[in-house]
Amino acid sequence: MQKAIEHIMHALFLICACVSILAVVLICVYLFATGVPAMSEIGFTDFLFGQKWKPSSGYYGIFPMIIGSILVTGIAVLIGVPIGILCAVFMSHYCPAGLYRFVKPAVNLLAGIPSIVYGFFGLMVIVPIMKSIFGGSGKSLLTAGILLGIMILPTVIKTTEASLNAVPKSYYEGALALGATHERSVFFASLPAAKSGILAAIILGVGRAIGETMAVILVAGNQTILPENITSGVRTMTSNIVIEMGYATGLHRDALIATAVVLFVFILIINLCFSVLKRRKD
């Protein structure tokens, strides 16, 4: 009797462990089964590299959205990563213990703020500022990039700080003993030793930025054309889905799901980079 219960529980634990496999399989099946046929109906090159997105007249090119996602993510990384790394350096090598008790929860809070609140903040604060500087609507590639840069800050800070703290203290002390200043020891001895962790931080930041939806919709302008310059409005793949899914039918809807497939493939590539990096570290 006792043995039977043990076996049943073992099986139950195993089944629960397999739920995540089931989840991934289901997601892949549902997305690919609808998305891939849609892509082939539109034509793979027309879909991926077509520059015109006009579902009403049968044009389904998501190239502007792909570029939009990449550019917005790029700007976010340019802004968020340097500030994040410097901030992590502050937390691990400058911050007195008394101050750290406030800075650490502050970073956690920054990570916990819902993206819709960030988006609303961007809409009410950053958009008007951009409007007064560059004119136009203020909703642009740059606005979205800046907002996303702020949003990925906590991700970058936390991962970088953890890897900086994992660097043996002797690196820093050795440099200091050789006469280097505090800054030189930190930036030229400790920081390079943490570079795989920093790379991981960047990849995680990219993943967060490219998948972000609700904040971007509110501040990016959402025009379905290739941006001419940094102050033009853009639409990302994620916002394309949310904006049109509500009323799309037929091929239009399937094309949106195909957009999600492209996004999914992007994320899979990013994840792959991340796990390769992690394996190399181990």
């Binding site: 993943g207 490219i210 994320i267 899979l268 796990s275």
Partner: peptide, 20 residues
């Protein structure tokens, strides 16, 4: 699969949920 699941953007989850 667990790692993959944790990296998927929430909009993709949303779209999957909608479809299924």
């Amino acid at each position: 699969t667990t790692e993959t699941l944790s990296g998927i953007p929430s909009i993709v989850f949303g779209l999957f949920g909608f479809l299924m």
